[in-house]
Design a binder for these strands. Structure first.
Lengths: 152, 152
DNA sequence: GTAGGTGTTCGAGCGCGCTCGAAGTCAAGG
DNA sequence: CCTTGACTTCGAGCGCGCTCGAACACCTAC
């Protein structure tokens, strides 16, 4: 399999695949007579797993650590397991946060739906807002004016 | 409330708060006699909400859109509602993805735990891997060698 | 009066994860 | 033979979301 087909099958771009190889996230691919990368199917599960780590927000440097340990063989299994367990804990935490945020979002949206016609006012529950780090206690109403939003 | 206290209460840095004001995500704060920003508590729920949008992965430009609509008053309520609904759909989708990934992670970790001592081999289920975009069908085993991981 | 602490503006820089373009090589098809 | 197209390497550039430092202003306490 050449890089183009691998790209098609993984949803990555050829550029990205080469980039992953460059940084060591993918093994150095065997080249054919014309010095082109020649993949076999065994790379696919690994790329799939990388994709899942990425989806769950693992930074590349951690994936790299995992990949490196993997390359070192069975002796590193325990460390790899620990790494994944830490990651899982982070993912679970994030998941819980997301669920909490979803509830707030639901409330907010319900507020907008409720005030469908006529004076809308402050949609959704404007209390119980949690800050970035659980630091907000006080709460009145959200401000109505926002600055003259530059195009960024 | 001066910017330092607001920073403490929100978990943001003063730098970040100024940045948010600059780009229009926070309203232009009233300045006191010494031209220092003087906040009242009404900003807190808004910052809290921004934090939640951020947690759920909304890009700043979308928050900006929301903030701008908000600034335009009740007439934009419907559009704001739609915006949040779209966002909610994305968050739900992402949540589902995360949960699926968590299952895979669990399996993998169970595999590492199972092979605690002795020959570890390929920990976790090495089948059923989904690619980045559901494009991988084929699957054998993950590669063992990874390139000489450059420091990136 | 002076030191310390907190604030101000401005613009540059950073870390991440790609993304892209240039210039060249190679093989197959008409 | 010549075109087409997929590949190669290399290095620069980008979009995002901050992050930081410089140089200066101001208030308060000693």
């Amino acid at each position: 399999m050449k890089i183009g087909e691998l790209a098609r099958r993984t949803g990555l771009t050829a550029h990205t695949i080469r980039y992953y190889e460059r940084i060591g996230l993918l093994p150095f691919a065997i080249r054919d007579h014309a010095k082109q990368r020649d993949y076999d199917g065994s790379i696919l599960p690994w790329i799939g797993f990388i994709g899942r780590l990425k989806t769950t927000g693992m930074p590349i440097r951690d994936m790299l650590r995992y990949a490196t340990l993997r390359a070192q063989g069975d002796a590193t299994a325990a460390e790899r397991g620990a790494l994944l367990e830490q990651h899982r804990a982070r993912v679970r935490h994030h998941l819980a946060e997301l669920q909490a945020c979803l509830v707030v979002l639901d409330t907010k949206i319900a507020g907008y739906a409720g005030s469908a016609r006529g004076s809308a006012g402050d949609a959704g529950g404007s209390k119980g807002m949690e800050p970035h780090h659980d630091a907000i206690q006080q709460g009145t109403r959200e401000p109505v004016r926002a600055g003259p939003a530059r195009p960024l």
